[in-house]
Amino acid sequence: MPYVQVDGGRRIFYAEEGSGPDAVLMIHGWGCDGSDWAWLMADLSRDHRCVAIDNRGHGRSAGVPGAYAPRAFAADALEVIDRLGLVRPVIIGHSLGTLIGSVLAVEHPEVMRALVLVDPVYHGEDARLAAVVDALRRAPHEVAAELYGDFFYSERTPSWIPIWHRRRLLGTDEGAVLGTIVGLQDGTDGLGRRVVAERYLPRRGVPTLAFYGGDKPAEVALERRLQRGPLDAIEFWPEHGHFLHQEAPERFATAVRRWLETLPDSGRPT
């Protein structure tokens, strides 16, 4: 069965494709599920073992009321790595998944080889995050759908993508829709807060490739300050939106492969 049991029997759904000496773990964003990575899996699975999970409370994975902070999501991903025997996978995260992957890169760098970030979301200002949470408390699905429409797409977004996203978002448990954003701004663990991220993220202990879409010069500037070594890199695609990996899947896969080729073969068992 394509489930990993975590945390006393709760189930995390995953899909797996391909095989090879190197593994990849793909982690989706808020209101999404592992199907976000279908295009990238089709490419990388030619020579990688690829696993895409549904985060807790999303897709086919069980939720945990009140427990949607980035560290909680990361604990699930860590168990998936262990239970599936993934040997130092490259972790690829989008949106919320960039926080989950970053927690693992700070707290457990020994379990992973590298980190790919797709339009990170650790730049939130406190007042803005608080206003979003207040609005979500009143109408989680409706406000979330408005946020998607207002901020996540570009002129290059195919018309079918927002329709697919909206259907999936509205099918996500409203507790997870609200709780995930609450977790982004919850005190010193709220990694969606810029003031927290600026202190925490410099501790990431693996090579990192970050993609940014849209008009985000300040966010890209922060990412440059977070870079730690010669293998760290940034791809800035201002003509694309938050789901740039879906808007330009072939270009995205090519860029990821090109960067992976620069890494040492440290993910391979000896």
Score class of each variant (00 low, 15 high):
residue 7 D to L: 15
residue 11 R to A: 08
residue 12 I to A: 11
residue 14 Y to K: 08
residue 15 A to S: 15
residue 20 G to W: 06
residue 26 M to W: 06
residue 26 M to E: 00
residue 29 G to Q: 03
residue 30 W to Y: 01
residue 32 C to W: 12
residue 33 D to N: 15
residue 34 G to N: 04
residue 34 G to H: 12
residue 37 W to P: 03
residue 45 S to R: 10
residue 48 H to G: 02
residue 50 C to I: 10
residue 58 H to C: 08
residue 58 H to E: 00
residue 60 R to F: 05
residue 61 S to C: 04
residue 64 V to E: 13
residue 73 F to W: 06
residue 74 A to Q: 01
residue 80 V to C: 06
residue 85 G to T: 00
residue 89 P to E: 09
residue 91 I to L: 14
residue 93 G to E: 01
residue 93 G to L: 00
residue 94 H to T: 03
residue 95 S to I: 00
residue 102 S to I: 03
residue 103 V to K: 11
residue 106 V to G: 04
residue 108 H to A: 15
residue 111 V to H: 14
residue 114 A to I: 09
residue 115 L to E: 03
residue 118 V to H: 01
residue 118 V to T: 11
residue 122 Y to S: 04
residue 123 H to L: 13
residue 124 G to A: 12
residue 135 A to Q: 13
residue 136 L to G: 04
residue 136 L to H: 08
residue 138 R to M: 08
residue 138 R to L: 13
residue 138 R to W: 02
residue 142 E to L: 10
residue 143 V to I: 15
residue 143 V to E: 08
residue 144 A to P: 02
residue 149 G to R: 10
residue 150 D to H: 12
residue 150 D to A: 14
residue 150 D to N: 11
residue 152 F to T: 11
residue 155 E to T: 09
residue 157 T to Q: 07
residue 165 H to Y: 07
residue 165 H to N: 12
residue 166 R to Y: 02
residue 167 R to F: 08
residue 167 R to G: 07
residue 172 T to K: 04
residue 173 D to P: 03
residue 176 A to I: 04
residue 179 G to D: 06
residue 180 T to L: 01
residue 185 Q to R: 14
residue 186 D to F: 07
residue 188 T to Y: 11
residue 189 D to Q: 07
residue 192 G to S: 00
residue 192 G to E: 01
residue 194 R to E: 11
residue 198 E to T: 14
residue 201 L to A: 07
residue 205 G to F: 07
residue 211 F to T: 06
residue 212 Y to A: 09
residue 214 G to R: 09
residue 216 K to F: 01
residue 217 P to T: 05
residue 218 A to H: 10
residue 219 E to K: 12
residue 219 E to Y: 06
residue 224 R to W: 12
residue 227 Q to V: 11
residue 227 Q to F: 07
residue 229 G to D: 15
residue 231 L to P: 11
residue 233 A to V: 00
residue 234 I to Y: 13
residue 236 F to N: 14
residue 236 F to L: 12
residue 239 E to P: 06
residue 242 H to F: 11
residue 246 Q to S: 14
residue 248 A to C: 11
residue 252 F to G: 03
residue 252 F to M: 09
residue 253 A to F: 05
residue 255 A to Q: 13
residue 257 R to I: 01
residue 262 T to A: 12
residue 267 G to V: 08
residue 267 G to C: 03
residue 268 R to V: 15
residue 269 P to R: 12
residue 269 P to N: 01
residue 270 T to D: 09
